[in-house]
Computed example of a mutant assay.
Amino acid sequence: MPEMRNSTVTEHSIRSGDHVTFYLAAGPRDGPLIIFIHGWPELALSWRHVLPRFGGLGFRAIAPDMRGYGRSTVYDRHDAYAQRHVAADMIALLDALDGEKAVWVGHDWGSATAWSIASHHPERCFAVASLCVPYRTIERGTDHLVSLVDREIYPEADAPSGQWAYMRFYHERFQRATAVHDADPRRTIKALFRRGKPDALGKPSPHVQIFANNGWFGGGDIAPDVDRDPAVVSEQDLCAYAESLGRNGFYGLNSYYMNDADNLAYSDESADGGRLTMPVLFIAGRYDITCESVESRLADPMRESCEDLTFETVESGHWMAQEKPDRVNAILTKWLADKVPSAWPREMNQARP
């Protein structure tokens, strides 16, 4: 195998109309594109352990700040964060990179965008991968998610929305939810970015209490001042998250949850009824109790809609690429080698037996 190279991460931005997308990049400019899409409430920085790996392999590895985040354009309307607009940003980014196709990798709301690109623009995809969030779930809205709730853990009489009650809370009490997040972004990130807990399996998510508590974090007006979890985020990275969120606020981030009707309509416009024929990788977080996909029915629609699905599991919580980056890198690399050889860098293809 050739020596890894070009793994330095650099900063860039592109403009499409009035919209600016900031992005991080690693690897040779002429390498095949692999684009990593972060979720809530992260940044391109969330892929800091992944970009150098794939850049070093000879890919052009890209991680954008999504709209509303970091140094990309921030909007003051909920409807600006519908998936049709977010996916369009990514196609504009691909065009600006002079790319015909890319491998798309998403996490959390970034998964919704990666799935949207695969289902609406299959001709722009070598393949698609997702961490934690299966296909045909979050991008189809809260009602659809609730239909897949594990009623053994969340009896309907006690928890009608199951672990997705926090999404309903945004719909009904958006200002309250956002005010608590904005009260101290540094404390919010520390409270959210925690490693997975094996003993949480089979137990209800704390999200079920969000209405009873009138908000996140047990109902306080500010996130608790807990110790930083070094398994997920360093002090330097925490400062970067806090600075960005303190500057932009949580309005745009939380607005991703406010477009159920439009997102469902957009999903219904998918090519070929939403069936994916390209190689698909899904990596479940074993201890991600909100997006639990190993024992629940959450991944069933994905299994029914993908012709070439690889399903892997990592012993992590929700922040998988930050908590278990070596395992994520290994799974992605093997999958690309096995399933997407046409997207490998030329030098790597020549070196393979």
Rank of each mutant, 00 (worst) to 15 (best):
E3V: 15
S7V: 13
R15H: 11
D18T: 11
H19G: 08
T21D: 01
Y23L: 11
A26G: 10
G31T: 06
P32V: 13
P32R: 12
I35L: 04
G39T: 00
W40T: 04
W40V: 11
R48D: 02
R48Q: 09
P52K: 09
G55H: 01
G56F: 11
G56R: 07
R60G: 10
A61G: 00
A61S: 09
I62H: 01
D65I: 06
G68A: 00
V74G: 00
D79P: 05
A87P: 01
A87S: 15
L93Q: 13
L94W: 09
D98M: 02
W104P: 06
W115Y: 00
F126I: 09
V128H: 04
V128W: 03
S130P: 15
L131K: 14
T137E: 13
R140V: 07
V146T: 04
V146C: 03
L148E: 11
D150T: 13
I153Q: 09
I153S: 07
E156T: 13
D158M: 13
G162V: 04
F169S: 10
Y170N: 07
R173Q: 04
R173G: 06
P185C: 12
R186I: 08
R186E: 14
T188C: 08
F193C: 11
F193V: 13
R194G: 14
D199W: 12
A200V: 08
P204I: 08
S205F: 09
H207M: 11
V208S: 09
A212C: 13
F217Q: 03
A223S: 00
P224D: 11
R228F: 06
D229P: 04
V233G: 05
S234F: 14
D237Q: 14
Y241C: 01
Y241N: 02
L253E: 01
N259E: 03
A261V: 10
A261Y: 03
N263K: 09
N263L: 03
N263F: 12
L264C: 09
S270Y: 09
D272R: 15
G273C: 11
G274S: 07
G274V: 10
I283A: 10
A284H: 02
R286I: 07
C291V: 14
V294L: 15
V294W: 02
V294F: 07
R297Y: 07
L298H: 08
L298T: 12
A299M: 10
S305Y: 06
C306Q: 15
E307T: 14
D308S: 00
E312A: 01
E315W: 00
G317P: 06
K324L: 08
P325M: 14
D326S: 08
D326P: 00
A330F: 01
L332A: 07
D338Q: 08
W344Q: 10
W344V: 03
R346Y: 08
R352T: 14
